[in-house]
Design a protein around this nucleic acid. Structure first.
Lengths: 200, 200
DNA sequence: TTCGTTCTGTACTTCCGAATACAAAATATG
DNA sequence: CATATTTTGTATTCGGAAGTACAGAACGAA
């Protein structure tokens, strides 16, 4: 009934997310987004209203995709609690390894967005999205920690909530270290050291 | 012999640094800088050439001030290695506590700058400054770790270099968690858990 | 084939913020 | 007190990036 799109929306959002992740919101021009998505200005604005709107939809898509993969690992009944936490760290390490192969660090919308108050105040949905993502992951890790304490694979020196915060921090730390140029091998050891603190 | 400045340069730089830390480079306008420093546009440009130049000098001043305080703790011969590392973490926690009292997280130029590749590519001095700061801290922590391994207060499960990366990551993680809204109490526990991994 | 509808690309407008120009002000020195 | 010199504040310019307008293109349906 009308002219069809020459691009897939989901693919476009993921491409946009990649660009935003690497350059940050303010330092990404709409032109960069056009080339990244492989589409003209007109199409971009036709499909996604504005840069702000595109950003919101892009991080939404990205965070959801990420969350699904993580959920699979953290909720895997075949693993002990400790193995689930280890699995989560492995996902992060794998992502950084892939990114490193392309010559850059993975970047992380959560960290970058959290670190920019102005970005959050730009549109309340942004802060909300990131906060929901964080909170969902927090609960998932907390649950895995409880499982681990029950099956004896995780220390009881900390409450599950404390463990969840620690794991989040550990992941953020690894991401920042990756940006600082730490080689994969070092990132792996950092993860191992961190997890060691959670052994019973 | 000429009209004197109405402001102190060092104070101005620290005020600018504070502003940049909270909003990030791209999201800080020169007007914000003027009000933060308490000076007109003309004066600002007269004293510091451009926004870029001001940014560079501001982070330079800030990182140096920070580094001096940290050096005192990490090099304190009265402390064991573990106590020095604990002291470093205490500095970070203290900074976050003060910031929290003002209703915001401390922010961290290192993390923010590392997380923004475009910012670094803007002027090579920026990346260099942050990298030098990181590297200096890295060496200082590594040294403290060695001391700790020698005096028996720090584990030998990891090499000093690995410990240094871990501690940097731990600090970054704490800063990110602070931005995410974690209360001081949680940050403290995260630090404690991390340091537990370094016990012999 | 023709029409209605949506997509695409380009040229244009608009706006915001960095940077500059310049006149007035403030001091030290002779 | 006069002059040289630097600072200060304001008005203005300038550039770049976001967003818009619009004409043409690509389909499906009648």
């Amino acid at each position: 009934m009308a002219r069809p799109r020459t691009f897939d929306e989901k693919t476009a959002l993921m491409a946009a997310a990649r660009t935003f992740r690497r350059h940050g919101f303010a330092d990404t021009t709409t032109e960069q987004l056009c080339t990244a998505v492989g589409v003209g200005r007109g199409s971009l604005y036709n499909a996604f209203t504005s840069k702000d709107e595109l950003f919101i939809r892009a991080i939404e898509a990205y965070l959801q995709a990420l969350s699904e993969v993580e959920h699979e690992v953290l909720g895997d009944p075949a693993r002990t609690g400790a193995e689930r936490l280890q699995g989560l760290l492995d996902l992060v390490l794998e992502e950084e390894e892939n990114a490193a192969r392309d010559g850059h660090a993975a970047g992380c919308i959560s960290v970058a967005t959290l670190m920019s108050p102005d970005l959050r105040s730009r549109d309340e949905r942004i802060g909300k999205l990131v906060e929901e993502d964080r909170s969902r992951r927090h609960e998932a890790v907390k649950h895995a920690a409880r499982i681990g304490q029950a099956d004896g694979s995780v220390t009881r020196d900390d409450a599950p909530d404390g463990i969840a915060w620690f794991v989040s921090g550990l992941i953020s730390g690894i991401r920042v270290n990756a940006q600082a140029g730490a080689p994969i091998k070092v990132l792996r050891r950092t993860a191992a050291t961190g997890l060691r603190a959670l052994r019973p």
